[in-house]
């Protein structure tokens, strides 16, 4: 059998010694992302976990130029860097905006929307850990329906459904949007590779489990990430030009309860809550299937079985 991840066996673009928590999903994600982009990349990071993870002054982990930006400006700063590089003739250099869900769904949305609307040539990747984890697990626009955070305690869990960032980005008709998660590293890698070859604003939404914030054991990161996909909660799909939708992998349709069971932030859920959420999930997945069918004429071409 030997090594099953040929593409991913490359020199790391980041050094160890990073300050992420044990089992951090976002660091697993950035490893694959940077392997796909290579060292000829400049990264902008707004306020988020990664401002800390990258290391304390005067040390940092990434072996590429790394710009800390203000919370709302990851996309705008990236656009500026792109323009500067273009002017100086560095057309091959990739510009990546790497932002958390706070800096994407909430605070950075205006800048992101502006960039997407004018189809600036950057790759924007949101690693979504579903709350403001870095500052102490406050609710964000990405926090799931009925989930616990420190600002939405068990007595009054999050009342609003998670903002659908992919639909927002689709409305901008940008060339490429994809969802990915850390349990499927090759899928993430290939999506970044594909995005790298395209021009214009490209957006990838990466679900990155956060063991402390999700109230779970650190070794469960991958398991939970995989369950998020297999329960249809977080389907893996791509959207090209805002229209053509492709589901990459057909989930095993595991009941959502299995996903909730592993995480303390959902432990207060009652049976009817779970039922309600399951229905929401089913409805959305049905919608995706329909769109896949509209694009491809069939749903039989969706990969089943072991997916990486």
């Amino acid at each position: 059998m030997a090594f099953e991840w040929e593409e991913l066996l490359q020199e790391e673009v980041l050094d160890p010694g990073i300050l992420s928590c044990q089992g951090c999903g976002s660091t697993i994600a950035i490893r694959q992302v940077l392997k796909a982009l290579g060292k000829n990349t400049i990264i902008t990071v707004p306020a988020c976990c990664w401002t800390i993870i990258d290391g304390p002054f005067p040390y940092h982990s990434l072996k590429i130029p790394f710009f800390h930006t203000a919370f709302e400006t990851a996309a705008a700063a990236a656009t500026g860097i792109r323009a500067g590089l273009n002017t100086r003739g560095y057309k091959d250099t990739n510009v990546l905006a790497w932002a958390g869900d706070g800096g994407t769904f909430d605070i950075g949305l205006q800048a992101l929307s502006g960039v997407a609307e004018s189809n600036e040539d950057i790759l924007y990747i949101c690693y979504d850990n579903e709350a403001y984890m870095n500052t102490g697990i406050q609710r964000s626009g990405a926090t799931p329906y009925k989930a616990w955070t420190t600002t939405t305690p068990y007595e009054s869990p999050n009342k609003r459904p998670k903002k659908n960032i992919v639909e927002i980005m689709r409305a901008h008709k940008i060339p490429y949007i994809a969802t990915a998660t850390v349990a499927f590293p090759l899928d993430l890698y290939k999506k970044v590779k594909k995005a790298k070859e395209l021009k214009g604003t490209r957006f990838i939404h990466v679900l990155a489990p956060c063991p402390p914030g999700w109230r779970m054991d650190s070794e469960l990161t991958i398991k939970v990430s995989r369950l998020a996909v297999d329960t249809k909660l977080f389907p893996l799909y791509e959207v090209e030009d805002g229209e053509k939708l492709t589901i990459n992998y057909y989930p095993k349709e595991i009941p959502i309860e299995e996903y909730f069971k592993l995480q303390g932030r959902f432990r207060h859920l009652e049976e009817e809550d779970i039922k309600e959420i399951q229905e929401m999930i089913n409805t959305y997945f049905e919608k995706l299937l329909e769109e896949h069918k509209r694009t491809h004429g069939t749903i039989d071409n969706i990969k089943r079985g072991v997916y990486k």
Partner: peptide, 14 residues
């Protein structure tokens, strides 16, 4: 059998 899962999934490049 050197499948490489541990290498790929390690969050700390360790």
């Amino acid at each position: 059998n050197s499948c490489g899962n541990c290498y790929v999934y390690c969050p700390d490049m360790s």
